[in-house]
Design a protein around this nucleic acid. Sequence first.
DNA 1: GCAAGGTC
Length: 714
Amino acid sequence: MTDYLCISEKPTAAKRIATALDERGKPKKLPVPRNFGRIPVWESMRNGDRIVTIPALGHLYSTVEDSAGGWHYPAFSYKWTPSYLANEKNKTRPFILAFKKFGKEISNVIIATDYDLEGEVIGATIAKFACGQDLANVKRMRFSTLTKSDIVNSFEHRDPSVNINLVNAGFARHEIDWLFGINLTRALTLSIKHATGRYKLITTGRVQGPTLRFVADRERDIQTFVPIPRWAIDARIDLDGDEIFIEYNKKFLPSLKEAEKVVAETTGRDGIVKEIGPRKITQKPPAPFNLGTLQSEAYRHFGYTPSRTLRAAETLYLNALISYPRTSSQQFTAAINHRDILTQLTKCDPYRVRANKLLAKSKLHPTFGKKKDPAHPPIHPTGKKLAGNLRNEERNLYNLIVCRYLAIFGEPSIKNGLRLDLKINDHIFYLRGMKVLKKGWLEFYTPFGRVDEVELPDLAVGDVVKLAYINHKQSYTQPPARYNPNSLLKKMEEQELGTKATRASTIDILYSRGYIEDESINATDLGFAVIDTLQKNSPDIISIELTRKLQREIEDIQAGKKSREAVLMESIVQLKKILEKFHKKEKIIGVTLEEQVQNLKQRQRILGKCPVCKQGELIITRSIRTKKRFVGCTGFYKKLCDWSAPIPQKGYAVPAKKNCKHCGFPMLTIRRKGKKPFTICPNWISCPGTPDEVIDNYRNNKAGALDAIVEEET
DNA sequence: GCAAGGTC
């Protein structure tokens, strides 16, 4: 009889591993000392052997500076330490305690984390630091799915030792990101501190840098864009008194002369229907959702930002309503029993009919996309009955996920795209129609797969129609569109920056640092200043090339062509030069950045034009006398306007960038820790939208009286 | 209060 200690990446996986390895499929939960906290330790029995499976919670160890003394740079000395020591909010202590306890009792250690680079690091740090193992003696299970057969197979054919090159490659990834991120962030932040004595956190890193640059580059493209004039033909025909728009066969004409020619040659003439061409369009059902496509679709249908979608999906996952959301996979494996899930869904009113329809099929073939993920299947409903405690956005997202899941079993849809060609003199115009011949999967994706059918007027080839109006219209070529949170995330995905689990939060960080702003994302002057500074002093950190190079080096370490130490030394040599440059230019860098920090702070206080004097701007400010925060007009200083109003004192107040629908005043948003942000009208005293009780409460000095003037959830 | 990467 042998004892094994099995290291798993997370609680859900641990349970499945323990269940698969237990002969009776019923692993025992082992008691852990109460002071460890709540942590599931599983015991499975197999062929007389005992397997103890303990989950991690992702990374339990991380890199921190290996010297005291606060912020300074260069900082090249780091060590691996328990994450709960590196960060107070981290809740991994009980997990490390459990691994330490059972690691002392059991010497046969098997790593059974996700089969990827980070999984290797998660397992190796635990085996080494918590269990005190020499990695050469640690075994490795490699599975591509968490199915019983894969788990059992990977246990029986486990690798005799971990792949040390792979572990070193993973360690190097963490360490290089730490070296670049910590040092450049400190260099930027300290430049302000040393030059002006002020503190403002200016961060950057391998992923933040290039992501900010995408936005800055796009903004520069827009600002330097030269619009070129072009002309379109605007035409309508008369059909029994109805005017119907027709398209010219060229969307735009490059010169006025050409446009005038078209108008001159068609004015006053009739058109003849030349051809009515049906074109069958077959559209296959979409691939199942992975996190990226879910975020994209949720943005399209509900306007949710990727990070909002991820948060809502996590809640659904923790309520066991959907599968693991941080997946890249668009391919189901045979392991998932779709018939079971669909049967469960028939118990839910909105899905009953559709699920039954699918169950009536003799075979269920889900679609698949290109992306794979060794650790997880695509996002799908579990079939568990919906509880009543979900928020609106979670319900919406759940509905989207279920409908998509139903749609992937559907038949292709067939549409008839109709085009009627109208000849007027020698010019061809189009009238387009669209008819759905067979709904197929679109029926299952309702309400998300709606197609607007456009009927063609009842015309036949040879019919003559009267031109009702024709003229040319000048317009201009358009600059490229700004990114929004969704398209920026897609760009990161395309460029392989960050991971599925981190991209949305990186974008949030750029917002919170004041580098980017608005839904239609533009770089702030501070964002530009950071990019300019880095461009001059450390161009690599804002280039995707750093990520490419890191990828190559990781591959080299994996292949045994390069050592982890050599790769790290290269980075340190490179950083040394960069940081010396920063040090020499600290003054000018600090002053430049601080100027933009102040500029940003100032701008972030302005709500908008004052509707009273129409000259000044409403600004969030503080009274010198009472120290209380209020909104006033900048016209006050010029003795133009003395409008002002009290606002809530707690929380973080920023311009809402929209106007009150009742009185037109520019509004402000208040964010308070742990609470939903709310938007209020500064003119609440006179605004018709303010409930009477708010005014009463305020007059009666009730605490938090102003909190009630909530415009809407933000 | 610093990175990026896991997970709850």
